[in-house]
Nucleic acid binder design. Structure first.
Lengths: 185, 185
DNA sequence: GTCTATATGTGGATAGAC
DNA sequence: GTCTATCCACATATAGAC
């Protein structure tokens, strides 16, 4: 008999892929492992996602939705120096959170060595979007050289994300908050 | 007839492995490719290196010798604030150099997700050694809170290394030099 | 028809044998 | 240096359950 299509299959697959990809990396996790974790069949996976690239892209897109929504809530209504201060504190909270394993977009770009495939282009867009937000806040901050301020803050943000996977991440994030505050006295 | 062992075989293998591992990453390069590039036989490789881990470790160790020698020359006789200023300029030159593809030790640690194997422990020691140098210089700089200064400089160093593979790397490195100088007015 | 599960094909990896 | 063995990756095809 015909079974009705399971509308939750796609979500179940992504739910299963998420922790695997995030904690262990993309290359280290095979499609077979995703299938096993999802409890779905291999055929179902390849119907929803033609190939691994599409699955990875969907994983990154869903991750981005989560992060973007959280970012929008946290920074809602802020601008200028207030925005920069709130943003560095947001990054601090994220890298200090339990289970944090690096920025998923930077992770992918590093793992694949600056890939130009669709997941890579998407990841780069996400990183650049945050960079543009820093530039916007810097422009609103009323300083003499907004470009230099943005460059300085961005350097600190990248430093936090770079140190994030290591035990020192919380100390580095705390130092970052202090540095940005000092820049904006 | 028995051919005499080639004393340069080990060096030839490492010479061949170096650009492959550095430019494309460790996991992306197979032993067969190293053999082909080295022009030596598979047997010769496995005689010099029991497995890939040993080859990778030797690659990292040789890279470290090169970098450490260059670091020692550049920072010879310096201390305190002068040391910190020279160090950030050294990092700036490195990430701005042609063919730069990231810090090889950070690359390995990221690619393998914080590995505890011998190459991973060696890479971590290299990163920590630079960190300790920053701490030493900060302690000599005669500031009120040397620990905070070291943390701030280290954050900037990590930020430069993090942004290094991207096109923005030179601008980020220049900003880093300015930030450290400003910290040490 | 859509699922699960198994079998298969191709490619590439490490590693050893001769 | 070539050949083989094992293993695992992505992807496809097929067989049976509902």
């Amino acid at each position: 008999m015909a079974r009705p299509e399971d509308p939750t299959a796609r979500e179940r697959i992504l739910d299963a892929a998420h922790p695997l990809f995030y904690e262990r990396g993309i290359r280290a996790v095979g499609m077979a492992e995703v299938v096993a974790a999802a409890g779905t069949g291999k055929q179902a996976l390849y119907r929803h996602f033609p190939g691994k690239d599409e699955l990875v892209l969907a994983y990154l897109e869903r991750f981005a939705e989560l992060l973007d929504a959280s970012t929008a809530r946290t920074l809602d209504g802020l601008e200028g120096a207030d925005g920069l201060r709130a943003l560095i504190r947001l990054v601090e909270r994220r890298v200090g959170a339990r289970g944090y394993a690096g920025c998923p977009f930077r992770n992918y770009l590093r793992e694949m060595r600056d890939p130009r495939d669709r997941p890579g282009r998407f990841a780069l867009r996400q990183v650049r979007a945050l960079r543009r937000l820093v530039e916007r806040y810097a422009a609103e901050a009323g300083v003499a050289d907004p470009g230099a301020l943005a460059e300085e803050v961005w350097l600190i943000v990248e430093g936090v994300y770079a140190g994030a996977p290591y035990p020192e991440r919380r100390a580095m994030a705390a130092a970052a908050v202090g540095r940005v505050d000092a820049l904006l006295i």
